[in-house]
Each structure stands twice: as structure tokens, then as C-alpha cells.
Nucleic acid binder design. Structure first.
Length: 802
RNA sequence: GCGGGCGUGGCGGAAUUGGUAGACGCGUUAGACUUAGGAUCUAAUGGUUCUCCGUGCAGGUUCGAGUCCUGUCGCCCGCACCA
């Protein structure tokens, strides 16, 4: 009958759906649990691309193996469904964004089901469901109550084009990550989450995670912990003082000027009348610059003298104070002490502005600043000390003077959590007439989005919800105080911060999830998704999880034990797939032409999961060919006749090695090599006189994890009534892996000269004897003296001659 | 500049972690079967002056190096004035 993939896939797709085959009873604790999670997709209008099935197939293979191994497997899927494209659709068509979003979800779900992924759809969630975002809002309220959410007028990344504020993480090169529009900095009233409060724990707990090194490193750098000293500089002839942060307090004697960021509040206060005009012009100019413009002038260090002087607390020296935009207002205290001799940036600034340079460490500063370690000079009591010693001595002195203290700073900043958008979770807080923030009572959740006639933000940054009906906007507290609802909404990240928790108990009306279930199912055992989320989503989710841990909701410190990033599938030409390059492959077309099993097999076989791999049409053909070769053994009567209930022993080694290798490789997500071994086994079956039926059944079980449709079909063809899904995972017999004879390399002076067939238990003397008789080795041994013999049993025999 | 990763046949990639380099697949070639096949099966397939040469390049350690060390070149990803 040949391999009719369309019929086979349609048949099992329907069967699995009708029978809810992959339902997971999360309250069944009788078996060990395994939680395999995919990063849930944003249901875009384009539908799935071929990158989606890659990660999804990986977790699906693991899920299927774990089920066979007797685990209770939770393998859910859902929708990260708030987002910009839906809002833009709403604005354009003046229709509710949910219409667009629900249609996309429907499309995605059909596509995903076509791939044969063993999701338990009874666990399906969407972040836009009020039953779901009720709990997103609930978590926010808990954060508010624990002082982790607050409102502030702060300079933010505002994108006029998108009409909203963006998080620092959402701004790339001064442009919005979505759309690539210009982003400017301006002060606005925003909700902020104190992620910095968790900076230390987010950093330290990275050590316990089984995550890609690069991702751990990225998070570590993003948090950017640095230890230094905060020093107070008083302003000469004034009561004012300002603080600077430095990691090189040892160079304090070399400080010849100070710099304030343009945003620093003291700039306006301190500037002298003579310098006022120049300074104000400079401050305004840098405010107008986008982040991109500010960073693109990397080499050029601009700044203006304020006209005032500060006192270096360590030696009482008067030094000039500048305003310069190479100092960031958002890091440390927004002010620095400048040591041109030992800091490259200060060096460049000092050269340009003709400022003094005092060398305080030995070394050459004629061309560049000297930033390495050396003996201190010109540093009074710190002379002769190295960096560490001078740091300690000067810090101690500053502490005695009351002018300095140890301080830890982070690059990580608090998370700007509000967006001037319609299509997001409403923030469940009301601003009362007296200006205070009132969290709405929990029994009033969910706070649902109101129906609107216009979804557009206004040009002043007023959110769309400001135009909501007054019944929605006006609020009265249970004790009769009046107020106006918050009209900002949460960012898209909110819903994805905790979705893995809701899957465990998705319909619970009374709690985020049943505590007993949470304790049993967390953490997630395996989490697979794109590397583009290495900082954003994964850092935010860890932050929320740690908060939920602190308030006793979850019992694990970290949400995701093991993380894997699937590599991107590139176009056939090795370039990134894109419409403009015309190299986009649509999974629907492949399912139509080759079938979902072939698509899955190809994507898993193409190369290591984490590597980027080019698409290959011939490779896809090859995947299908392999399925056909395996299928033929049951389908073709000549092959079928070879199946035997008696073991001829021919395939003993091949099969047992297969089971061992596939078990280990699957566990390590090494799917390409596992599949290669399956191919070897099928090749061996083709050569064999007889195929021992249980061996072939074992093969089909493992094969079905990669190709579930044809796997299930073949299982049925072998006469089974029950599904292959819950069959026990094959075992292997270690004793069958021992060969009686082995091929051992014979090398002379390290170069392989012959391969000897030897008894597996051969001794060194016997091996050497055989080696001496080798025709191939003879020319290299004749007339030589044996100096040394290296014999590694089962591996190699190396004879050193001279 | 800093951090992370990677360089192996015509191509995607293997290599028991220091022990026969090139598994498996793609492609190519030959043969079989066939009215025919771009289907299927079988076999061959790193290069080569037939003796060697081969894992980006140059050294080193070792009986033995794709694997370890030093230097160097190239590519990819992230961060980027963080004081």
C-alpha cells in the first residue's frame, strides 16, 4: 500500500483528539511527574513558521519518552495573546482586538495539532482570558501590597510612533524592539516594579540552573552587579554636596575634576550665571538626543564647565565640576569622579578639554590611561600599595571622615511596568481624589477591559483607556471614597511571567493554583524556547517566581530547572528566513507535501537542537525516505515475512546498542544522533535474514516519539489494540553489547597501520604476537627495536620503535 | 572594546571525552529490477603523484591530539560611555 501519510496522519489526529489521549491528571501523584514546557507563542497573523515545530518537537519527543518511562507528564500549550499587532488591527478596523486574536489562536491551534504534538488541551490557557488575567492582576496586587509596585514620574523611553512607553529591555540601539521606531526620553507618570530589590538573588541563583552558559552569562551581565564606594564631594563655597560611585576608589588622589549627568538635579542649581547659558543649551541638546544619538558619538566626549568647584575629600583639593553626557543619569548617582590618568573615558575628556592629569599608579600614560594594577604614587598614605591595598586604605580613611561608604550598584533598573495601550491587562488600582493609590479589593477581580469605540492612544501619551466610558473610569471604594481607575495597562510580558504555574491547575476559580499541585509539579523540568528570550522573559519570570516564593505560593526558588534554546532554522541559502529574501518555508506546505512526521524527523535530524541549521529540501526528502524504509518492513510482504518470533541473534548487538544510545541521547536532547542510530538499525534490518519481532517493536516505540503518526500506525499494523503512547519504554541487555571479537587499531609510533581482529579478552602479549604477524605493519617493524608498547584494552595497541 | 560560542569531505553533521577522523543523512557514481523511472534495492564515495597528506593557520605537551596548552586568523551571537 506504500506510505500514505495523509491518511495515516488524519486518522490518528482525529483519534487522539476524540479520545483526549494526552490528558494529564495533575492530581494523580501515584507516578513521578515530568513537566515539559514550551515557550507559548504569540498568535500572530502569519501563523506558525518552521522554527516553531523545532522546539515543540523536541519537548514532544521528551514527553512521549517520559510517558513510556512511567512518568505522569504535563505537556501543555497556550497563548501569549496580548500584543501590538492585535491592537494595530483594532485601530485600523475599529474592531475589538480580541476578534483578530481569537481567529489567530484558532489558526495556530489547527496548525499545531497537525504536527502531532501531544499536548493536553484541557490545560490550554490564553493570557487574554479574564479567568487567567484575573490572577495576573492578583499577583500585581500582592506586589503592590508588598511595596514592589509604585508610581513615579520618571524619565522613560517613550516611542511616539507606538504611542507608548517601553522598558529598557525593549529598546535596542535607541529604537523600539518592535517596529524599530525612534525612542526618546521624557518624564512620565509610570508604574514601576522593583525588580532591583531582587537583583542579588536573581544573580546568585543563576549558579543552580541547568541553563545554556551564554544565557546565564547574559543575565549576569544584564544585572551587572558592581561593588565600589560612594563618595561625597562638597561643593566649594556652598552647602551643597553630591555623591559619586566608583569602583576605583584607590585612584582618588588622581581625581582632577568631577562630572554630573545632564539630568542631575544639581546641574541647574549649581551653575554660575556666567556659565548658565552654555550649560542650559548643552542640557537641552542632550535631552533632545535619542539614546542612539547619544551613544553613537562614542568617541567624542562633550561637556561644559559649570563654573563651580568641588572639594576632593581625601586631600581637600579644589577641582572643577562639569556637566557631560558621557555620564549616565540612570546609573549610580548620576555623577562621577574623574581620574584621567587611569580611566579611558576621563582621559579622552581631559585631553579634549585641557584638564589636569595626576598619575597615581606607576606606568605609562603618555598615549592612554593606565588601567592595570601597579604600585601607587602621589597618593600620600597609599603610596606603595597595590590596587587592593589602596582601596582598603582609602576607603577606611573616607569612612573615618564620614565622606564615603561601601556600595553595590546594579546595571539592572526597576521595571517600567505600564503601557499606554488598550490591549493589555488593566492595572487594578484606582487613584483616589486625595491622590493616593487604592488597590481594588481582590473580590472585584478580574477587572475586565471596557468596550471602546476608539483604540488609539492620543498624541500626548494619554492611554486609550482614558477615553473609556465613565461607568468604567469612575470608581467608588467600599467605604465611599471616589477615584478614577488607572488607564495604563500592563506590558505584554506580564502574562508570560507566570503561565507555567497556571497550566498546573488552569480552571481553579479560588486560587492561582492548588498549593498541593504546585508543590508537586514545580519546578518545570524542561523548558525549551528561543534564545531571544535569554534576558527579557526569563528574567521577569524568575523575578515573579521569587516573589511568589517569598509570599509562600510556590516552594521552589527557581521556575525552570533545565532550559534549552533551539537554534534558528535558516533558509536553504543559509540566510535568515524572511519574506524579502524569498526563502521562507511554510510548515503547512511541508505537511501537505511530505507529512508532519517527515517535517518533525527532518528538523530533529538536521543537526544539534541548539545550532542554527539551514533548511534543505533534499534533506526533507531523505527524512521521508527513512520513514518509508521503516514502514516498508511492515507494509511489504517480503519484509514482513522476515519478522520472526524466534531470535536468530543477528540483531542482538544492533538493537541493544540502539536502545542504549537512543535512551541516553533523547535524555540529553541529542536527537540527531539518536535518529542516526535508528537509521543504522533499519539498515541492519534490511541486511538481516530474520528480524526478531520484539526488537522491531522496540524500535517502533522509540521511533514513534519522533514520528508519532506513523509510529502509532505501525504499532497497530503489528497487531496491537492499545496505543503505543503508554507502552513501556524498551530495555536493553548489557550482556548483548559485549562482542566476542573486537577490531583493534594497531599503530606504530602513533600512526595507525592495521586493524587487528582480536578476542575481546585478549591480553597484551597475545595482541603483540598478532601485531608482529601483521603484513601491513611489517614494513614499519622490520629491523627496528621495540622501545615501548602501549596497550589499551578494547581501544588501541601502539608499538613504539626506533 | 568586553562577554559567550564556533571553525571537520561537494553539503548538513558524527567522533565512546586523549585512542581506527569522517557515523548517519544529502549529493554523486556504478550495477540490479523494470516498458519506463527522478521509485526501490545493492555497492562505492575525504584528497592523492599509491605513498603519503588530511579536522582554519603556526607552534607545544604526549607513545598517541579534531579533542589538552600557547599564539594567530576568520565567523556567529549578546552587551556596549555602567564610572
Amino acid at each position: 500500500m506504500a506510505y500514505q501519510f495523509k491518511d495515516i496522519e488524519a486518522k490518528w489526529r482525529k483519534y487522539w483528539a476524540d479520545h483526549a489521549t494526552y490528558y494529564c491528571d495533575t492530581s494523580d501523584f501515584s507516578k513521578p511527574k515530568y513537566y515539559a514546557l514550551d515557550m507559548f507563542p504569540y498568535p500572530s497573523g502569519q501563523g506558525l513558521h518552521v522554527g516553531h515545530p523545532e522546539g515543540y518537537t523536541a519537548t514532544d519527543i521528551i514527553s512521549r519518552m517520559k510517558r513510556m518511562q512511567g512518568f505522569n507528564v504535563l505537556h501543555p500549550m497556550g497563548w501569549d495573546a496580548f500584543g501590538l499587532p492585535a491592537e494595530q488591527f483594532a485601530i485600523k478596523n475599529n474592531k475589538h482586538p480580541e476578534i483578530f486574536t481569537r481567529a489567530n489562536i484558532e489558526h495556530f491551534k489547527n496548525q499545531i495539532n497537525a504536527l502531532g504534538l501531544s499536548y493536553d488541551w484541557t490545560k490550554e490557557i490564553a493570557t487574554i482570558d479574564p479567568d487567567y488575567y484575573k490572577w495576573t492582576q492578583w499577583i500585581f496586587l500582592q506586589m503592590f501590597k508588598h511595596d514592589l509596585a509604585y508610581v513615579s514620574d520618571i524619565p522613560v523611553n517613550y516611542c511616539p510612533e507606538l504611542g507608548t512607553v517601553l522598558a529598557n529591555e525593549e529598546v535596542v540601539d535607541g529604537k523600539s524592539e518592535v517596529g524599530g521606531f525612534d525612542v526618546i526620553r521624557m518624564p512620565m507618570r509610570q508604574w514601576i516594579l522593583k525588580i532591583t530589590e531582587y537583583a542579588d538573588r536573581l544573580d546568585e541563583d543563576l549558579a543552580d540552573l541547568d541553563w545554556p552558559k551564554s544565557t546565564l552569562e547574559m543575565q549576569h551581565n544584564w544585572i551587572g552587579k558592581s561593588t565600589g564606594v560612594s563618595i561625597s564631594f562638597s561643593v566649594a563655597d556652598s552647602d551643597e554636596e553630591f555623591k559619586v560611585f566608583t569602583t576605583r576608589v584607590d585612584t582618588l588622589f588622581g581625581c582632577t575634576y568631577c562630572c554630573l549627568a545632564p539630568e542631575h538635579p544639581l546641574v541647574k542649581k549649581l551653575v554660575t550665571p556666567e556659565q548658565k547659558e552654555a550649560v542650559e543649551e548643552y542640557v537641552e541638546a542632550s535631552a533632545r538626543k535619542s539614546d542612539l544619538a547619544r551613544t553613537s558619538t562614542e568617541k567624542e566626549k562633550t561637556g561644559v564647565f559649570l563654573g563651580v568647584y568641588a572639594i576632593n575629600p581625601i586631600n581637600g583639593k579644589k577641582i572643577p565640576v562639569y556637566v557631560a553626557d558621557y555620564v549616565l543619569g540612570s546609573y549610580g548617582s548620576g555623577a562621577v569622579m574623574a581620574v584621567p590618568a587611569h580611566d579611558e573615558r576621563d582621559y579622552a575628556f581631559a585631553k579634549k578639554h585641557g584638564l589636569d592629569m595626576i598619575q597615581v599608579l606607576e606606568g605609562d600614560i603618555s598615549e592612554n590611561a593606565m588601567t592595570g594594577d601597579a604600585k601607587h604614587i602621589n597618593s600620600d598614605f597609599a603610596n606603595g600599595l597595590d590596587i587592593a591595598g589602596a582601596k582598603a586604605a582609602i576607603t577606611k580613611k573616607l569612612e573615618e571622615l564620614g565622606k564615603g561608604e561601601l556600595k553595590i550598584n546594579y546595571k539592572l533598573r526597576d521595571w517600567i511596568f505600564s503601557r499606554q495601550r488598550y490591549w493589555g491587562e488593566p492595572i487594578p488600582v484606582v487613584t483616589l481624589e486625595d491622590g493616593t493609590e487604592f488597590p481594588i479589593p481582590e473580590d472585584q477581580l478580574p477587572l475586565t477591559l471596557p468596550e471602546m469605540s476608539n483604540y488609539k492612544p492620543d498624541t500626548n501619551g494619554k492611554p486609550p483607556l482614558a477615553g473609556a466610558p465613565s461607568e468604567w473610569l469612575n470608581y467608588e471604594t467600599p467605604d465611599g471614597r471616589k477615584g478614577i481607575r488607572e488607564t495604563n495597562t500592563m506590558p505584554q510580558w506580564a502574562g508570560s511571567c507566570w503561565y507555567y504555574i497556571r497550566y498546573i491547575d488552569p480552571h481553579n476559580p479560588n486560587a492561582i493554583a492548588d498549593p498541593k499541585l504546585l508543590e508537586h509539579w514545580l519546578p518545570v523540568d524542561l523548558y525549551v524556547g528561543g534564545a531571544e528570550h535569554a534576558v527579557l522573559h526569563l528574567l521577569y519570570a524568575r523575578f515573579w517566581h521569587k516573589f511568589l516564593y517569598d509570599i509562600g505560593i510556590v516552594k521552589t526558588k527557581e521556575p525552570f530547572k533545565k532550559l534549552y534554546h533551539q537554534g534558528m532554522i535558516l533558509g536553504a541559502n543559509g540566510e535568515k528566513m524572511s519574506k524579502s529574501r524569498g526563502n521562507v518555508v511554510n510548515p503547512d506546505d511541508i505537511i501537505e507535501s511530505h507529512g508532519a512526521d517527515s517535517l518533525r524527523l527532518f528538523e530533529m535530524f538536521a543537526g544539534p537542537l541548539e545550532e542554527r541549521k539551514p533548511w534543505s529540501t533534499t534533506g526533507l526528502d531523505g527524512a521521508k525516505r527513512f520513514i518509508e524504509r521503516a514502514f516498508r518492513i511492515l507494509d511489504d510482504e517480503n519484509f514482513r515475512a522476515k519478522l520472526s518470533d524466534e531470535n536468530s541473534g543477528e540483531l542482538d548487538y544492533s538493537y541493544n546498542f540502539l536502545v542504549k544510545k537512543v535512551s541516553a541521547d533523547f535524555e540529553a536532547l541529542g536527537f540527531n544522533t539518536a535518529i542516526a542510530q535508528m537509521m543504522v538499525f533499519i539498515n541492519d534490518c534490511y541486511k538481516a535474514e530474520k528480524i526478531y519481532r520484539p526488537y522491531f517493536e522496540g524500535f517502533v516505540k522509540m521511533f514513534s516519539c519522533v514520528c508519532p503518526f506513523v509510529g502509532e500506525e505501525m504499532w497497530q499494523m503489528m497487531g496491537h489494540k492499545d496505543l503505543i503512547t503508554f507502552e513501556p519504554w524498551p530495555a536493553y541487555d548489557e550482556s548483548k553489547l559485549k562482542k566476542s571479537t573486537i577490531n583493534m587499531a594497531l599503530s606504530i609510533n602513533g600512526k595507525t597501520r592495521d586493524v587487528l581482529e582480536l578476542d575481546a579478552e585478549v591480553t597484551e602479549e597475545e595482541a603483540v604476537k598478532v601485531a608482529m604477524a601483521s603484513e601491513k605493519a611489517k614494513p614499519f617493524l622490520e629491523g627496528k627495536t621495540i622501545r615501548k608498547v602501549i596497550f589499551v584494552k578494547g581501544r588501541i595497541l601502539n608499538i613504539v620503535v626506533a
